[in-house]
């Protein structure tokens, strides 16, 4: 009954949702490279505008994006503070012992924070717009060349697929067992760390037993459907479309643009 929202896929139909997952993974890698190559605010501005456009095309509500950033808010603030206080520089506004707030420090920490936020937003945009299933298919397909060195790509893909199927079930089950033990007076919320870990034993034991039982039956069901780990075919083939071409061109343009900005405009400010 209760739906466990596994992963954070946001189910709407959009240009970005329809892109080939392999393309999105490659574009994400390209984008991350671009973020790291960008050495000044102009480069970051270009990255940010591309990302904002992508968000607009994805029809994922802005609130969702904000929530993704909120998850790493602590890290962002921590990074900002450390750099503002310890970076040092020529134009000093305030100093106390080894602490020193300078113009350079503020700019540098802003630069780092923007990079961090861009990184988080673009990765979460991938998970918002790509189902976990499509993601595994994409990863499998991208790893296909590894078959040449006898890497068991196929088995790995099957493991990922089964994990995707089973994780929500086990999460649901954890919730159920937790509730059952809570009904018998178990307390998971109070006491010191040791007490809390100990309180989880009545959840962990049934959960493990259930996982084994499920694995057993799944194994039988796979056997019964002629699985033998040998040669098999694949029904779903991913296909590139015109959208992916557009995306790929945009990605290449982005990296080139950022590199040019770096060469001509130099480092921060």
């Amino acid at each position: 009954m209760k739906e466990v929202a596994f992963g954070q896929y946001y189910p709407v139909d959009s240009f970005v949702h329809r892109l080939d997952p392999r393309f999105k993974i490659v574009f994400l890698i390209g984008f991350i490279v671009a973020i790291f190559v960008a050495s000044n605010f102009y480069g970051l501005a270009v990255c940010a505008s591309v990302l904002i456009a992508a968000i607009a095309f994805s029809r994922v509500p802005f609130g969702k994006i904000v929530r993704a950033v909120r998850g790493v808010l602590f890290l962002v603030i921590f990074t900002a503070l450390i750099n503002i206080l310890f970076h040092g520089g020529d134009t000093v506004y305030w100093s106390y012992g080894i602490l020193c707030v300078s113009k350079e420090g503020i700019l540098f920490s802003a630069y780092l924070v923007i990079r961090l936020v861009l990184l988080v937003v673009c990765s979460s945009l991938l998970t918002y717009t790509t189902t976990p299933v499509a993601l595994t298919d994409g990863i499998e397909s991208l790893l296909t060349p590894l078959k040449w060195i006898r890497f068991p790509v196929h088995a790995l893909a099957l493991v990922m697929s089964i994990a995707l199927r089973m994780i929500p079930i086990l999460m649901d089950e954890t919730e159920r067992i937790k509730n059952a033990q809570k009904a018998r007076g178990a307390d998971f919320e109070s006491g010191n760390l040791f007490k809390r870990v100990k309180a989880f034993i009545p959840v962990l034991v049934p959960l493990l037993l259930s996982a084994f039982r499920r694995a057993d039956e799944l194994g039988d069901a796979m056997d019964a459907r002629c699985y033998n780990g040998g040669h098999r075919t694949k029904y779903k083939k991913l296909r590139f479309s015109w959208r992916d071409l557009v995306g790929a061109l945009l990605g290449a343009a982005l990296i080139t643009g950022v590199v040019l900005l770096r060469v001509y405009l130099g480092d921060i400010v």
């Binding site: 697929s161 089964i162 039982r213 039956e217 799944l218 069901a221 699985y227 098999r232 075919t233």
Partner: peptide, 21 residues
Amino acid sequence: DNQTVASIVEDDVAFGAENVA
């Protein structure tokens, strides 16, 4: 819940047929 290997219906139905290539 213990018999499906894929998250999408058609992918799961395909599993056996894929196994026999």
